[in-house]
Amino acid sequence: MLVLCGRDNQVLLDFVRGLHPKGVKKRVAVEVAELRVQGPSAVREISRKLSSLKPGQADAVIILRGGGSYADFVAFDDRELIQAIRQCALPVITALGHSEHVPLAARAATASFDVSQTAGIAIRTENNRRWFAGQPTSKQLKTKIEQLARELSVQGSRTSSLEQANARLRQELADTRNHAVQLRERGDDLQQHASLQNREMHSDLLELALQKIRLNSLSRGLWWSLWTALTALAAHVDTGLGTGQTVALSMLPALWAIWTFTGGYRAQRIIDSSDWRGAVMDVDLCWLRPRIAGATVPRDLCWLLRHRNASLQQ
């Protein structure tokens, strides 16, 4: 609030007393500008001050004086001052004192009062009304506090429920992890057991195949030995060939008989080779079993090793 007044401190004190009574919180700031409020120069000073004001510089401007005779109010009937009041960028309030004469400046102002204290009281009342406008009452505040307390209680219950659910989920997660670890360990044990069984079964299959190859080599070797003896006897009796010629004629079946007799030894060398142990030991028994079971000569094992290594490379 911008106050335009003369050097009369009592007028200003009365205004401040009405605006800020004792024991009441001050909500309006007051800025005082001392000017002449009567005489020939009052019109010029007050008009110049009102014309210099800009929007936002203050909420309002009030002109104070302490009353007087009719002659003291001549300045407030001046046309120049009336125009300055009407054209002022801020609302203009007047409190020009008790007088039967109402000056034109008071009529042109936004609001007018008779004495400064009354103006201060009115401004304080209006300011308080605007200050508390839209503010909740104590009953509304109490209701709002009770509502917030209920919402806080509900949120607390929800938080407690969520914490319990979180604790249950953590426990379930820990149980699931422990169960997964147990399953993984059990899977590793089963895998090791299956691998051991595969190795044992693989060894048994190889042993059976080896015995089968040895038996087959023995039987075929005996047959070729018999064939060699019969060939030599027939060549010597029927054709009358000499001993050297007979031996030369029976040399081929004799060599084949020797090669057949060594089938078990050659099969053993194939099984003991590094290629067989590194590539065939852990192969799928579903693929390996019928092929090992069908092996009758070392050549079958060589074929099995060659095709198995080719499938592993692919």
Rank of each mutant, 00 (worst) to 15 (best):
V102G: 00
A111K: 15
I93L: 15
V30G: 02
L96M: 04
G56P: 02
K49Y: 08
K25W: 07
C88H: 07
I63M: 07
A111M: 15
A58N: 02
D77R: 10
T94Q: 03
E45I: 04
V24D: 09
A109G: 05
E80Q: 14
A89M: 09
V92F: 09
S41M: 00
L96K: 00
T110E: 09
A29G: 13
I46Y: 04
V30P: 02
A60H: 03
E31C: 07
S112K: 08
A42R: 06
T110A: 12
G67P: 14
S99N: 10
V74N: 13
R65T: 11
A84E: 07
L81D: 03
V102H: 01
T94N: 04
Q57S: 14
L64K: 02
L53H: 08
E80F: 08
R27M: 14
A42E: 04
A42P: 10
A33Y: 05
G97K: 02
K54T: 13
V43F: 01
A111Y: 13
V61F: 06
Q38P: 13
L64P: 06
G66T: 08
C88M: 08
S51H: 08
Q57K: 06
A60K: 03
S99K: 04
L50R: 09
E80G: 08
Q57P: 00
Y70P: 13
D59G: 02
E34R: 04
H98I: 03
F76M: 09
V24K: 14
G97L: 01
K49P: 01
Y70V: 15
G67C: 12
V37P: 06
C88T: 05
H101Q: 10
L81T: 03
R86V: 11
T94K: 08
A111W: 13
L81E: 02
A71H: 14
A89V: 03
V43R: 01
G67K: 10
D78H: 13
E45Q: 10
A71Y: 11
A84R: 09
I85V: 15
R27W: 10
G39K: 04
F76V: 08
S47C: 07
S112A: 15
S69P: 05
A89T: 11
Q38K: 15
R86F: 00
V102K: 06
K54D: 05
L50M: 05
E80D: 12
